[in-house]
Computed example of a mutant assay.
Amino acid sequence: MMRGLAQRLRQPGLVTAPGVFDMISAKLADGLGFDALYMTGYGTVASHLGYPDAGLATYSDMVGRVRQIAGGTRTPLIADGDTGYGGLLNVEHTVRGYEAAGAQAIQLEDQEFPKKCGHTPDRRVIAIADAAAKIRVAAETRSSKDFLIVARTDARTAHGLDEALRRGEAYAKAGADILFIESPETVEEMEKIAGSFDLPLLANMVDGGRTPILGKTDLEQLGFKVAIFPVTGFLAASAAMASAYRHLLETGSSKDWQGTLYPFNDFSALMGFDKVWAFERAHADYTNPSQGAD
């Protein structure tokens, strides 16, 4: 039976959620025993469309990826829902769609449309009342309170930490289950965030981003409940592929490449070929009937 994210949040300890962006990353992470997976918007848009995370992906693009990943894994999925893809009616539609697709939490942010990745410049936020209304609609729309609303504010970079904290308080009152104050720039800012709210708090650990990368113990001691690592997987995979492809280009072969390859047989098993082969063995009499039989 699938573990519940809402139940896990009531238990001690940090929930570490790796960023997944396609079915290979999702299946790899799913088999390792994480408490949650995080469907990164940045990585999913890049992987699926080859575009920057700049408001170019549609609701249809993203809900399809939610359905694929949630349907192909057993670990609770937190899914990036951007701005809800429009106004309040769009937020209602998005929440219903993500919940039906199998996510256990949706992340909604307060940026203007088109949004931008949270660790890039020139992000602008909508009015606090409008953003709180989106969170309120999301909380009212879900069919189960175990489907969690992650409220994110991007106000820190352009308007300062105090405005971001003020928005976090408004979103908590509007019905958010988890607060996500994006892009604090020092440990001291993270400490202030953690001391400002009673709700579970999410830390966004973006390798190469604006926020310091902290260890598990440090995050727990500060008071964060969830830590997402949205870019770690695709940056690691991209580095490995770039190295392998460069070697192929330079030498004409994979022979003598010094990187690490995932074993082919293990990868075939990860993708489910063992079940295919077992099925074919079980139905061999139907697919390969004896020649000359009456």
Rank of each mutant, 00 (worst) to 15 (best):
F147K: 05
L14N: 10
T40A: 02
A151R: 10
Y262T: 11
D154L: 02
M39N: 07
T157D: 15
L32I: 00
A70N: 06
E191V: 05
R96Y: 00
Q68H: 14
A172C: 06
L9D: 03
H48R: 14
V91W: 13
G292E: 08
L108W: 07
S60F: 05
L9V: 00
D146S: 13
Y98K: 06
Y262R: 11
D154F: 08
L5K: 06
G43C: 01
N288Y: 09
F197L: 01
G252K: 09
A203K: 05
E92K: 15
K192L: 09
R10G: 13
F34V: 00
G71S: 04
F180G: 07
H283W: 08
L88G: 06
D274W: 01
G31D: 04
F224T: 09
A131D: 01
E250P: 11
D177S: 10
D53V: 04
G272L: 03
R136G: 10
P200W: 00
T58M: 03
P114K: 00
R167I: 01
G118E: 10
T94S: 13
A293I: 07
G84H: 09
L88A: 10
T40K: 05
A244C: 07
G55Q: 05
N204K: 05
A155Y: 13
M39R: 04
F234P: 13
D274P: 14
R65M: 15
G292V: 10
G4N: 09
D22F: 08
L165D: 07
N204P: 08
S25N: 03
S183V: 01
Q258N: 12
A57M: 03
F234L: 14
L214E: 10
K275D: 15
M241C: 13
Y59I: 00
I181K: 09
Q258E: 14
